[in-house]
Nucleic acid binder design. Structure first.
Lengths: 329, 329
DNA sequence: CTGAAAGCGCTAACAA
DNA sequence: TTGTTAGCGCTTTCAG
């Protein structure tokens, strides 16, 4: 019966018998019990998905992408939130391992990540999303952060901005580092002055952190007409500070975000930002993970998905102030 | 060993033996295998969470609330998206049942729902969230929709509005019905004229549907100075139409939403809306479900959580136009 | 091609 | 209080 009902081994059994068995199974309303199967095969067809926080609008689309691939492949995902708490993360991973998940998709990795090391050493199939810890040889899928940051800077430059500040994401994340590095190298390429005072590194990927960053920049007295934010949340934090100081975006300050989160087209002003293909990122991560599970010896893959500039209303040519520069747009 | 390691039966065994066993287990790095346990106990400690779409910002906070209760209680949740497709929903529920989930939290229920009937009949523990199919005797937890709609109407009325339109949510959802009914009864209570032409019932809880509704209202030629939307997405759809017709909110039209989704405080103008305690709703649903699992004979509970008015910038007193009415605010 | 039987890791019933 | 054993529902040898 087991052979007849299992599509993969069905050919080991007489076609007529198969029919007979299938018919009987149907008439009895038989449903295989995946628990018993898992016990025998040591495979649960279950994937642990580790997120910082599902409530961050960045993640639901990624999760949808993951599920869109996992479900048809017969996998179920267990989604957990770490709230960026390494302790919580560790216990969640532990708990998922004891639940015998077949692999992990991890979107929380910091640069330095003992847990990852361990999973990797133990040969647990895993793929990182949005993060790439360079010293580890694991599969990663993320947007092209460097190209995205470059697009942001070039957009601003083409608008005529020459004093461009950066509110970088946390430097303990590969994303923060990659975007920031690309910011600096693009500034250099374009021959725009890029003094350290114009970069503030946020502690978190949050509005509060972004707000704090812009306040600090504004208070420092450096001049700048535009800011590129590490992500959309940081950019929205800028909006708050601008409102609180009665400054206008984009008249007083152009701001560009990163991620093109849902609803940033509805904020005021609609946010110019770098769009990333969230669903594809999730889908690709799931695909890579399944490949890794099917063939654990496969060499890890690193995939970058293209990011693109979405111009909306939060950027414009700098307004001329006690200076003779003429805006070009 | 089993007895010693199981907290509940630990007292059936000599304290010294327990210590010895626990120590041994630790030194061996023993981890109980939940699969094997499930096979024996026919309990998976797993809950199916059925959502229309995780990508709708309404749900992540609810999911967080659910998990905050489920996790500590030793349950894991399996989250699935139906995309409002009944076929997909059925197959997902089927698949979760075959995975032997211990219960369901369902946020997708339409008024008429054969699947629910069946689950209920079979005695599967389940609780509905945000929906309450009145003919079924199942546990529900939802915001107080009626009170919320009443708050919305009263707010507008107190601002001086007398021509208040409604963009109701779909009438195949209990939520849509409840809010709409409360809208009408409040209008009546306040003695405000409430002709049928001022209510448009949207087909979906989406921006597109809301936009279509407002267009239809505007094109019909009825006069109105305010609109209460079935939810925030519908309200945001109004924003789109207002922009496309070069009308201003709140000057030309006040709009109030429902749900206080994340980021509606950041849209322009910041949306006046009815806040619902999403996380608590999720948490309470999880609690009720656990109680139902622990004691299946328990009588179903219906809980309403309070909704409250959040006044922001999308509502103001009606501007006087070719009329002698004086605004009171 | 089919049947029989062992055993995955656990719990619960029973016996001592 | 502890030891022994059957068996949850499946897959997979191994024999026929």
């Amino acid at each position: 019966v087991s052979r007849a009902l299992n599509a993969a081994k069905r050919d080991l059994v007489n076609a007529k018998t198969v029919v007979r068995i299938v018919r009987a199974a149907e008439s009895l309303g038989y449903q295989p019990n995946p628990i018993a199967r898992s016990l025998k095969t040591a495979k649960t067809n279950t994937i642990g998905v580790i997120l910082p926080d599902l409530t961050n609008p960045l993640f639901p689309p990624i999760v949808r992408g993951i599920e869109d691939v996992l479900q048809p492949a017969g996998y179920t995902s267990l989604i957990v939130n770490t709230d960026n708490d390494p302790g919580r993360e560790e216990s969640l991973v532990q708990s998922l391992r004891s639940r015998q998940v077949d692999g992990f998709i991890i979107a929380t990795a910091l640069m330095d990540h003992p847990l990852l090391d361990e999973l990797h050493r133990q040969g647990v199939p895993l793929v990182m999303v949005n993060r790439r810890p360079h010293h580890l040889n694991v599969s990663c899928v993320s947007p092209d952060d460097a190209h995205g940051a470059e697009l942001a800077v070039r957009h601003l430059a083409s608008l005529g901005h020459r004093r461009i500040a950066q509110l970088a994401g946390p430097s303990n994340t590969s994303t923060g580092l990659a975007r920031s590095a690309a910011f600096h190298s693009t500034m250099k390429t374009l021959g725009i002055e890029d003094p350290p005072q114009l970069t503030y590194t946020c502690d978190y990927w949050t509005e509060e952190s972004g707000a704090q960053g812009l306040r600090s920049l504004l208070d420092s007295g450096v001049e700048f007409t535009a800011v590129v934010a590490g992500n959309d949340l940081i950019a929205l934090g800028c909006y708050d500070v601008l409102a609180e100081r009665r400054l206008s975006c984009p008249d007083d300050l152009s701001v560009v975000g990163f991620n093109d989160m849902p609803f940033v087209d509805k904020v005021r002003p609609a946010l110019t930002t770098i769009a990333i293909p969230s669903a594809q990122i999730g889908a690709e991560a799931a695909r890579v993970l399944i490949e890794t599970i099917d063939d654990p010896t496969r060499t890890p893959r690193s995939v970058w998905l293209p990011s693109s500039l979405v111009i909306r209303s939060s950027t414009m040519a700098p307004v001329v102030r006690d200076s003779l520069v003429t805006a070009t747009a």
